[in-house]
């Protein structure tokens, strides 16, 4: 596996480009999972690397590169969500009179409700950036407690409670969207 290590030397843009190439796919997919929009995810990805380049001196420990980059990426996603709140017109789906599917119910099992992609996406959109992030880091990327804490910038001891809070928020959102 490849890793990036910092050394005391002249900044090397070519080496940073290597970092970009090796991480851009992962950063983009994390952004996409959090934001759910390809254009926003692309913007967040670009902002992540630009910010990382501008603040590269802040990386004291090269072994923590992925956590550092993940934290920058989460900040970029937060910013995208803030911009979206300011600028985006919410799309409202009209009821289709020909749609005779059984309406979703909050009494259905969670697995059943989360299997509906549209419901899941609407519910996920109700969560905060941090709630989305902790769910992505744990359920999608299977990160360790320490890594999740590093990305969130939170104490290790609070990760479990944050995950519980996010899961509870997701279930509440799913119940609301399933009505």
């Amino acid at each position: 596996m490849e890793r990036i290590r910092g050394e005391n030397a002249t900044p090397d843009r070519a080496a940073f480009d290597v970092l970009v190439r090796s991480r851009i796919d992962a950063v983009y997919r994390t952004s996409l999972a959090i934001l759910g929009d390809t254009a926003d995810a692309a913007d967040a990805t670009q902002e992540t690397f630009v910010s990382a380049w501008r603040h590269r001196e802040a990386l004291r420990d090269p072994d923590r590169l992925d956590a550092w980059l993940g934290r920058i990426n989460l900040n970029a996603c937060r910013e995208q969500l803030r911009r979206r709140k300011r600028s985006r017109i919410r799309e409202v789906r009209l009821l289709d009179p020909d749609d005779d599917r059984e309406p979703a119910s909050k009494d259905r099992p969670l697995d059943d409700r989360t299997a509906d992609s549209d419901v899941f996406d609407r519910a996920f959109a109700r969560l905060s950036a941090d709630d989305r992030a902790v769910l992505v880091l744990h359920h999608l990327q299977a990160r360790s407690v320490a890594e999740i804490a590093a990305v969130l910038g939170a104490p290790v001891g609070t990760v479990k409670s944050r995950l519980h809070r996010a899961r509870t928020a997701l279930e509440a959102a799913l119940a609301r969207e399933s009505r």
């Binding site: 490849e2 890793r3 990036i4 290590r5 910092g6 050394e7 005391n8 030397a9 002249t10 900044p11 090397d12 843009r13 080496a15 940073f16 480009d17 290597v18 970092l19 970009v20 090796s22 670009q46 690397f49 630009v50 380049w53 501008r54 603040h55 590269r56 001196e57 990386l59």
Partner: peptide, 17 residues
Amino acid sequence: ALNGAGGMAGRLRWRRR
């Protein structure tokens, strides 16, 4: 975007291993 980013003068050298 990086070409136009400029930014702080860094002292890190990125090396792929």
